[in-house]
Simulated assay, not measured.
Amino acid sequence: MINIAILGAGRWGSHFVKIFLNHSYVNLKAVCDSSQERLNFFQEKYQIPQTVKLLTNWQEISNIKELDAVIITTPATSHYNLIKYFLDKNYHALAEKPLTINSSNAKELTDLANKNNLILFVDHTYLFNPLIEELNHKIQKGDIGDLKYGYASRTHADAIRGDVNVIWDLAIHDISIFNYVLGEKPFQVRAEGQNFLSHNLIDVAWLKLFYPSGFVATIHVSWLNADKQRKLTIVGEKGSLVFDEMMSSSPLTLHRANIHQDVSPMMVDGYDIENIDFTPFNTLQLMGDRFLSAIKTNHQPRISTGEFATELIQILEALDTSLKNNSAMVSVNYG
């Protein structure tokens, strides 16, 4: 059994409570949040037994005997101090993305975890989604040929954050997917954004990422759209793969067009759409199980590592730099 404490009783904290409260390989030892009212709500809603400590002071977690790991679902601005504290106490850690709000701190935490032989596992949720794994598999098989470009739209009008802007909140998902399936990182980026809501954070943005292979990714993110969008497309010379999370019956489809390039003007004489079959799953449950496996085996997939998370943060920092410089093209520093 692995003994776990959860820090943060918000939206993501509730997901982890549901996953680990009755998990056959987990003892949930504590849930911590600064709000006693929220903890009381959690206890009633999820019928949390008296054996689970409900704490408002996160430092009390280190008093729990035989604790193995902590899960951090607090605002990103608090991640560095919390994760560093618990790594120093020799606990494994799972952190909600982004790992930190600057790459220097992310690298420091990564080095500390490696030095102490601990698992620092970052929840890049979509990379544990079986449909994204299947999308990657079809790309590696060459089902859509040489990759040309991709685009994504991730929008909603709820869950508006106050700790990071919309790029750090939403675009990080699509950037992680592009990096994963391409097997490379963008070397230059450009960002345009605006602030429409009554706060100081960019809440709508359009991004371009340029990869060494010549692949170009375009991403639109927004906290304003009442029409929720979760769609990513990758276009190759032979067809396109479309992951549309809002299409519950067929989220992943393979599209092909019969393009005749040997005539002028070129002609298209038919389209073919293949719905990719899948078995229903809970991505967060799968990710959580990979975290437990990493603790047991002392081995974790690269997509969950501090190194991978640091690279994503370096890209986000470059996008922020572009925003501050009138959408200038910015080179990504992976130093």
Score class of each variant (00 low, 15 high):
Ser222Tyr: 05
His137Trp: 02
Leu207Ser: 03
Ile132Arg: 05
Tyr126Pro: 02
Phe187Thr: 13
Ser104Trp: 00
Tyr151Ala: 07
Val181Trp: 08
Ala95Gly: 07
Leu170Arg: 08
Ile202Gly: 02
Ile132Leu: 10
Leu224Gln: 13
Gly142Ile: 09
Asp143Phe: 04
Val166Gln: 11
Val122Glu: 01
Gly142Lys: 01
Asp143Cys: 04
Ile119Ala: 06
Arg161Met: 10
Leu147Tyr: 07
Lys97Glu: 10
Ala226Arg: 10
Ser213Trp: 04
Asp111Gly: 00
Ile175Cys: 04
Arg161Thr: 14
Val166Phe: 12
Thr218Ser: 15
Asn105Thr: 00
Val189Asp: 02
Gly214Met: 01
Ser153Cys: 02
Asn105Cys: 06
Lys228Asn: 10
Leu99Phe: 08
Gly145Arg: 03
Gly145Val: 01
Tyr149Ile: 07
Leu197Phe: 09
Tyr211Ile: 05
Leu99Met: 05
Arg230Glu: 12
Phe196Val: 09
Leu207Ile: 14
Ala191Gly: 09
Leu131Ala: 05
His173Cys: 06
Ile101Thr: 15
Glu134Cys: 02
Lys185Asn: 12
Leu147Thr: 11
Leu170His: 11
His137Ser: 13
Ser213Ala: 08
Leu197Pro: 00
Leu201Arg: 13
Gly162Val: 06
His220Cys: 06
Asp203Thr: 05
Leu224Lys: 09
His199Lys: 09
Ser153Val: 14
Gly183Gln: 10
Ala171Trp: 03
Asp123Glu: 11
Pro98Val: 11
Pro212Ile: 05
Leu201Cys: 07
Thr233Val: 15
Asn179Gly: 11
Gly145Thr: 01
Ile132Thr: 11
Asn165Cys: 13
Ile219Arg: 10
Ala106Glu: 02
Val221Cys: 13
Phe215Cys: 03
Ile132Ser: 07
Ala106Ile: 05
Leu147Pro: 02
Leu94Trp: 04
Asn165Pro: 03
Ser153Trp: 04
Gly150Thr: 09
Ile172Phe: 01
Ile160Asp: 01
Thr100Ala: 14
Leu112Asn: 04
Asn117Arg: 14
Leu147Arg: 03
Ile144Val: 15
Pro212Asp: 01
Trp168Pro: 00
Ala106Leu: 08
Leu109Lys: 06
Thr155Trp: 01
His220Val: 15
Phe196Gly: 04
Leu197Met: 15
Phe121His: 04
Val235Phe: 06
Asp174Pro: 06
Gly214Trp: 04
Leu94Ile: 09
Asp227Ala: 02
Ile132Val: 15
Tyr126Gln: 10
Ala106Cys: 11
Glu184Thr: 11
Leu182Val: 03
Glu108Gly: 00
Ile167Ser: 06
Glu184Lys: 08
Leu170Pro: 01
Ala159Met: 12
Ile101Val: 15
Lys208Ala: 09
Leu109Trp: 04
Glu96Met: 13
Val204Phe: 03
